[in-house]
């Protein structure tokens, strides 16, 4: 089934120069396995195609059930020259949580809601 990430994960984002970076965290191990499979650099790049001009990098961290995602050239040159309201990229994580992925219906977080 199609599931938006906000139902099964949490996330925080920040900035460094012209990069927006996101930590995406599964609430549990079964969900982490799904995130690792479904949240690919290509899909993230497509989700941010209107604001990320560079490549997307991604590192899975099995030890903390997390994906580290880097959006390169995503802040109009950097927070101090960006014209955007969210010049610091703090809301980029919320944008990611709106992305939908294919996930099995029996994930723990999908049972509690």
């Amino acid at each position: 089934m199609r599931v938006p990430l906000w139902k099964i994960a949490h996330a925080r984002s920040g900035d460094k120069a012209d990069r927006a970076d996101i930590g995406l965290f599964a609430w549990d191990a079964p969900t982490y396995a799904v995130l690792k499979r479904e949240v690919t650099p290509e899909r993230v790049a497509a989700h941010f195609r209107d604001q990320c001009e560079g490549p997307v990098e991604l590192w899975p961290l099995d030890n903390i059930l997390a994906l580290k995602i880097m959006l390169n050239r995503a802040l109009q040159g950097g927070a101090a020259r960006s014209l955007r309201m969210d010049n610091l990229g703090k809301v980029v994580a919320a944008q990611l949580l709106r992305m939908e992925i294919e996930a099995p219906a029996d994930l723990p977080r999908l049972q509690t809601k």
Partner: peptide, 16 residues
Amino acid sequence: FDTLRQQLLYEVHNPH
């Protein structure tokens, strides 16, 4: 665990 790991990856590039 959750609040700390959010900060662990905050504004980090390659976590390795």
